[in-house]
């Protein structure tokens, strides 16, 4: 049964090493697009907390606002109202310069379409976050090798993305997201563009990474993928409407079905 978010019962897996406060805290997030009569309310008063070492999945029908939420959590977008903080520091009101620094140092991203640079080899793509932040490749010599090994692509370092399968590309992208040891990895439909076998491999990899201590928040459509999360948060019409523990695909499917079924007739069309 989906229940309303309850911070005290939400944490599964390793707690944040005795930290007094959660890793990520979003409070009363509101975001609208457009203006006047055509304004679309993507998020209304959303609260979310993520503890260190957690894998949180956000699910919801199309247009539920889940992508907008991910953008704001990842410092890719700013809320109209509300606050969001990581390690107790707010970043919803920062200037572009600080947001840029945050993206490079605090967050890692995994995209639905992988977003590897087609002209760079797998190893170079993994190295990219260091390069865009002006670091020298030599510092990451062993890190790149070990990350590629970690995602099972140790022998494909010099391959271009076009020479890799979709699943392999997404594994390169995960290695890339982990390069600079981000506090939080955000994944946008990481299995959305993969067949079920490759999707499964990618999800097991993400799960393993979380088990090693990494915190991940992902948006997904796929109940199978969501089931590997510690926690699944449901979003509809820009509001959090429920949450279940992960671990059981059937439970997630049931919960998701209930969320979709309870959509009011002629629900306001929302869009992200």
């Amino acid at each position: 049964m989906p229940t309303n978010t309850d911070r005290s019962t939400a944490t599964v897996g390793e707690p944040g090493g005795g930290r007094p406060s959660p890793l990520l805290e979003a409070h009363a997030l509101t975001r609208a697009f457009g203006g006047g009569a055509t304004a679309v309310q993507a998020l209304r008063d959303v609260d979310l907390t993520v503890e260190e070492g957690e894998l949180v999945a956000i699910m919801g029908p199309s247009g539920s606002g889940k992508s907008t939420l991910l953008h704001i959590l990842g410092a890719l977008d700013r809320p109209d109202a509300g606050s969001v903080s990581i390690d107790g520091r707010r970043y919803d009101d920062l200037a572009d310069r600080e947001l840029t620094r945050l993206r490079g140092e605090v967050f890692g991203f995994v995209f639905q379409f992988f977003n590897l640079l087609p002209t760079l080899s797998a190893a170079e793509n993994v190295l990219l976050p260091a390069l865009v932040n002006g670091e020298r490749p030599a510092r990451y010599a062993t890190r790149v090798d070990s990350l590629l090994g970690r995602v099972g692509l140790g022998d494909r370092a010099a391959h271009l993305p076009t020479e890799l399968s979709g699943g392999e590309q997404q594994r390169v992208a995960i290695a890339r997201a982990l390069l600079r040891r981000p506090r939080l990895v955000l994944a946008d439909e990481p299995t959305g563009n993969l067949d079920s076998k490759a999707g499964g491999t990618v999800m097991r990899l993400l799960r393993a990474v979380v088990d090693e201590g990494q915190t991940v928040v992902m948006v997904t459509h796929d109940p199978g993928a969501a089931a590997l999360a510690d926690r699944v948060v449901f979003l509809r019409d820009g509001q959090i409407v429920g949450e279940v523990e992960g671990g059981d695909t059937a439970r997630v499917i049931d919960a998701f079905g209930e969320v979709e079924a309870s959509a009011p007739a002629g629900a306001e069309r929302t869009s992200t």
């Binding site: 640079l117 087609p118 002209t119 760079l120 080899s121 797998a122 190893a123 170079e124 993994v126 190295l127 390069l131 865009v132 002006g134 020298r136 490749p137 030599a138 990451y140 010599a141 062993t142 890190r143 790149v144 090798d145 590629l148 370092a157 010099a158 391959h159």
Partner: peptide, 24 residues
């Protein structure tokens, strides 16, 4: 040229991306 380069990496800095993009 740089001894400790990771395997499969020939870029030395972000600037090298430009050349790749032109060749593409």
């Amino acid at each position: 040229t740089a001894p400790a380069h990771p395997e499969g990496v020939r870029l030395h800095s972000f600037a090298g991306l430009g050349g790749r993009s032109l060749r593409a």
